[in-house]
Design a protein around this nucleic acid. Structure first.
Lengths: 148, 148
DNA sequence: GGTGAGATTTTGACTCATTCTAAATTGAAT
DNA sequence: ATTCAATTTAGAATGAGTCAAAATCTCACC
């Protein structure tokens, strides 16, 4: 749970940071570790509180900085729903999000390539899309609490 | 441009408001008129400034109230992109949004029923979706400025 | 046409996520 | 060890949006 990063995860972090000319720091390790440990799309505050348990002096601004850095080097994605606080997601596979009206929890929904390309095909010529965000909003039967 | 509402638009407004037990007021007419006059996904501030030209005493809070009311009775949709200011869109047909990286402008992208249903089909059993939001982000060749 | 009840509007204060600033600290290269 | 740039930190600032309470309006009813 509040273990250290595995060798593999650490080198993933190192590689991504180095690739964009940035340093591995204890704070970045701690924040990355928190994201991997519980993939429940935490808000900045949630990340902050979890990371504090392991690194009590960590500041909120640093958590904002780390997360922004990770987004910049492609380690994590931001998840926004309406104007609620931004959430963070280390799942890099193409996927949509389902937000449960009742609990507020966000579930990852796998996005098959053929659906992705049928989506891309609706763009008229002249529109060149770099990212697509898809989010569902509705009710999930309780029990669907996996990737909450 | 800053004309009055057409008969048809006015009765559309009346009907929607009455249906949910709310009143037609001069402020609501003005705000609705602004949304219909220029369908460029304005922010609250933009709606406020445009509506002020026609009704100088109008307050910002009222614009928030009107827009919330319209969303509540299904007259307009909110459009959010990351955590930027909410924009408003009177296009009720199923459509996605394309946000131009260069200009920030939002374009409506028509959403064919078969794409919509292929999207719905990726939800595992137990997930019941009421709304789907799809937003593209990328570059549009200048000239694609229609539904900006 | 006047009245009253409830809805709506208004002003200004407030919240809260996020960003910014400037100083302190750290890391890594020489 | 020294140095320079990157990072972290605390706290102030920003800005979209919300709220509270008083003023005003709408409309059904007389």
């Amino acid at each position: 749970m509040s273990q250290n990063l595995t060798e593999a995860d650490l080198s993933h972090l190192q590689e991504a940071l180095n690739r964009s000319g940035q340093k591995v720091t204890p704070q970045r390790e701690a924040v990355f570790q928190v994201l991997l440990a519980k993939r429940d799309h935490p808000t900045v505050d949630e990340v902050f509180n979890r990371a504090r348990e392991v690194m009590p002096g960590l500041s909120l601004a640093t958590v904002y900085n780390c997360l922004e850095t990770f987004v910049g080097c492609g380690l994590v994605r931001q998840v926004n729903h309406e104007r609620e606080s931004t959430r963070y997601c280390p799942n890099l596979a193409p996927h949509a999000h389902f937000r449960d009206k009742a609990t507020g929890r966000v579930h990852d929904i796998d996005l098959p390539p053929e659906v992705l390309s049928s989506l891309r095909s609706i763009l008229p010529p002249g529109f060149d899309s770099e990212t697509i965000e898809i989010s569902f909003h509705g009710r999930a039967q309780s029990g669907e609490a996996r990737s909450n």
